[in-house]
């Protein structure tokens, strides 16, 4: 059994020291080391996207990322989004639009969407499909997930845009 070593992870603005084996994944470190069980593991092969988290602003598959590789990165998980009972617009949209049924894939979809909308505030439906194509959902047929991404995009744009200059939308 390989020995464990300590890795320092910066997750949701907090610092965690987690003992990991060299082959432990970021998903394991987040779930077992940090106690952040909102990140789900569905396949362990990078095929389902349930484990998607944001690292340095981009979505990554935490089941294919070694915990040791994640040291020094700015990590964000599903737990970072809501402010108390106030949901992040992406979370609100997934609930309101029916983009979450069994919910197991939802944290991954939400994190993928948060990252997408931070980089592209007005994606088309086709672009949304591209962006979420690394995530699988077995319940919804994706229709209401895409609805949710559109709704979230609209709400985020409305929140960002100065009222008298609706065309001036800051990027990212």
């Amino acid at each position: 059994m390989p020995n464990k070593s300590l890795v320092t992870l910066r997750v949701n603005g907090a610092t965690y020291e987690v003992a990991v084996r060299p082959h432990d994944t970021l998903a394991q470190a987040l779930r077992e080391g940090c106690g952040l069980t909102g990140t789900k593991v569905g396949c362990d092969l990078g095929t389902c996207g349930c484990c998607t988290v944001i690292a340095d602003g981009r979505p990554v598959l935490s089941c294919l990322t070694l915990a040791l590789e994640a040291e020094g990165k700015d990590l964000r998980t599903i737990e970072s989004l809501a402010r108390g009972a106030e949901l992040h617009p992406v979370q609100e949209a997934f609930a309101t639009c029916g983009g979450s049924q069994c919910g197991y894939c939802t944290p991954g979809f939400v994190m993928t969407t948060v990252s997408l909308l931070e980089h592209e505030p007005s994606p088309s439906r086709e672009r949304i499909k591209d962006a979420i194509s690394g995530n699988l959902c077995r319940c919804t047929g994706y229709v209401k997930i895409i609805d949710a991404v559109e709704r979230a995009a609209g709400r985020l744009r409305a929140a960002r845009a100065p009222a008298d200059h609706p065309s001036l939308q800051p990027q990212g």
């Binding site: 952040l36 949901l87 609100e92 609930a95 979450s100 944290p107």
Partner: peptide, 10 residues
Amino acid sequence: LVDSWKKVTG
């Protein structure tokens, strides 16, 4: 769904 808030927050 009445349990959706739990699911979208993890």
